[in-house]
């Protein structure tokens, strides 16, 4: 069994029996974005190249919806059974993924356990949300923000935050000018954690002097990628951080 998507990698690694997985996506090895990187590193990294996939002779392929048409065709010709799952846009979708992957791996019991612990963690950090809830803005590399229909938006709402981009009617992964961010004066600015020990212009934008001055001190939260990029048990830790930021705001 091989997975080709960072988020699906995590669920598969959490659910599979030893020896069941023979390959994970190459970025699953990266500790900054992959919660289960230690387990992933025991497996060969696979890029979305037909040769690399076929060489592992998988009996099942778990993929996202972003395969090139030519790769899709090659895999079909090779006759490899494929499970395609859309990106999770919240805890509900994550629970659905857990159930479907558990079934595909023949590990329904493990899936039920994982889902139960996720539900329990979510319940623990759920806070009442309403029009008076504080506003958080997500500002990521390249000046991007996350709106409705994203895992992060779902987590924010569970933790009792309003998401600035979602309130503006934005959905998915969209750019937001820093000026707009500053003018909106959200209660909390959520920045990406580091993706590498080497810099990039994209990430430099998050440490722009304007943002540093506008959101000094407690009003900034750095959220490691690995905690909320994907839906999964690691989201509980993200919820804990968001709840903590809300507590800090009250003080």
């Amino acid at each position: 069994m091989v997975t080709l998507n960072l988020c699906l990698d995590q669920l598969v690694l959490a659910l599979a029996a030893p020896g069941q997985v023979v390959g994970v996506s190459d970025i699953a090895h990266d500790p900054r974005i992959s919660p289960r990187w230690r387990e992933a590193r025991a497996l060969p990294p696979v890029r979305k190249h037909a040769e690399e996939i076929l060489a592992l002779r998988p009996d099942l392929l778990i993929v996202d919806e972003f395969l090139t048409p030519s790769l899709r065709k090659t895999l079909r010709l090779a006759g490899i059974p494929t499970l395609e799952l859309a990106e999770a846009d919240g805890i509900g979708a994550t629970l659905d993924h857990i159930a479907r992957i558990g079934a595909a791996l023949g590990r329904p019991a493990a899936a039920l356990d994982l889902a139960a612990s996720l539900r329990e963690g979510v319940a623990r950090w759920t806070a009442a949300a309403g029009p008076a809830s504080p506003v958080a803005a997500i500002y990521q590399a390249n000046g991007m923000t996350l709106g409705r229909d994203t895992n992060a938006d779902g987590l924010l709402r569970i933790a009792g935050w309003r998401n600035l981009a979602a309130e503006r009617g934005l959905s998915l992964f969209v750019p937001m000018a820093m000026e707009e961010l500053i003018v909106a004066t959200p209660d909390l600015l959520i920045l990406d954690g580091e993706t590498s020990d080497r810099p990039s212009l994209a990430e430099q934008m998050m440490t722009h002097r304007a943002a540093r001055r506008a959101f000094a001190g407690a009003r900034t939260l750095v959220m490691p990628h690995s905690l909320w990029l994907c839906g999964g048990p690691q989201n509980v830790e993200a919820l804990r951080l968001l709840a903590g930021a809300r507590e800090a705001l009250k003080r």
Binding site: M178, S196, D197, P199, S200, L201, M205, H208
Partner: peptide
């Protein structure tokens, strides 16, 4: 090793003074 680096070629070869 930075995942964003590769996509910044446009900024360097086509220039920008944004942000």
């Amino acid at each position: 090793p930075n995942p964003y680096a590769f996509y910044e070629i446009g900024t360097w070869l086509m220039g920008s003074i944004a942000d």
